[in-house]
């Protein structure tokens, strides 16, 4: 499989009036096409910083990011950030509208996604009439609308309650696999990471360096909810739990 993204020795400093903090130090990682990678680590360790730099929202201090030019990045944020004055469809078309790419073909693609993923009856509804899980699906379709090759997800379900979270992560996972996207997901939930990712990167506390990369191999790997029942699940959980620095 070919490589989609190469990150070499990425470092990031933050500057405040008081001092300078090294948030990410020497982060190197290659992502293969179709990979689903989760990044876990103690809170405030700079996980989101890495995603922000990859998405071009933040600048890097040092290092190289090599991404094939024709590959596009889509970003899914911590909250759905739907515009409540726009309908579901209009929300999903936002990225295309901004990129001036609102062709008939692209619009049909979005309509198709909405139909496929259970939002058929809500295309012309406003977001405030949707449940939390539905909003999250709309947010994902909004990201997918621009046809990105790589999805960045920053704790995408942290705003949801536990029940919804499980079913939405199942939905989102299946959509990502079906649409054959690669993904990098930042999460603080170890179980969520194991149930979804092929590979887990464990970061140390600040300044974040890679502590360990673990390949997740589950027997009968299927959907995230079912994966939680795999017999290796507990083993991986323990392994990762011990690796993460816990400050209490």
């Amino acid at each position: 499989m070919n490589e989609l993204l190469k990150i070499k020795n990425l470092s990031k400093n933050y500057h405040t009036k008081q001092d300078e903090t090294l948030a990410v130090d020497n982060f190197s990682f290659d992502l293969k096409n179709g990979d689903f990678v989760a990044i876990v680590g103690p809170s405030g360790c700079g996980k989101s910083t890495i995603l922000n730099i990859l998405a071009g929202l933040d600048t890097k201090s040092k290092g190289d990011i090599i991404l094939n030019e024709k590959n596009k990045i889509g970003y899914m944020l911590q909250q759905d950030a739907l515009f409540n004055w726009k309908t579901v469809l209009e929300n999903c078309l936002l990225g295309l509208e901004i990129n001036k790419n609102l062709t008939k073909e692209n619009k049909d693609y979005v309509l198709d996604l909405l139909n496929t993923y259970g939002l058929k009856d809500f295309i012309n509804s406003y977001p405030n009439t949707l449940s939390g899980g539905m909003r999250q699906r709309v947010a994902l379709i909004r990201t997918l609308a621009t046809k990105p090759d790589l999805l960045l997800m920053d704790e995408p379900y942290s705003a949801l309650d536990y029940q919804t979270r499980l079913s939405v992560s199942d939905d989102v996972y299946q959509i990502i696999k079906k649409e054959k996207k690669s993904a990098i997901m930042v999460t603080h939930d170890i179980a969520e990471a194991i149930s979804m990712a092929d590979k887990i990167i464990i970061l140390s506390k600040r300044p974040s360096t890679i502590k360990k990369i673990i390949d997740i191999k589950l027997t009968d790997k299927s959907t995230p909810i079912k994966n939680r029942k795999a017999k290796e699940f507990g083993y991986y959980y323990d392994l990762i739990w011990k690796e993460i620095d816990h400050d209490v």
């Binding site: 998405a55 071009g56 929202l57 889509g74 970003y75 944020l77 911590q78 909250q79 950030a81 515009f83 004055w85 936002l94 990225g95 509208e97 901004i98 990129n99 621009t146």
Partner: peptide, 23 residues
């Protein structure tokens, strides 16, 4: 977070103004 969303789509400042800030 909505401004961040606009930026993830590489929106220009005037796009952020007219599509998000004003409405």
């Amino acid at each position: 977070i909505k401004i961040k969303l606009m930026k993830t789509f590489k929106a220009t400042k005037s796009q952020i103004y007219f599509k998000l800030i004003l409405p």
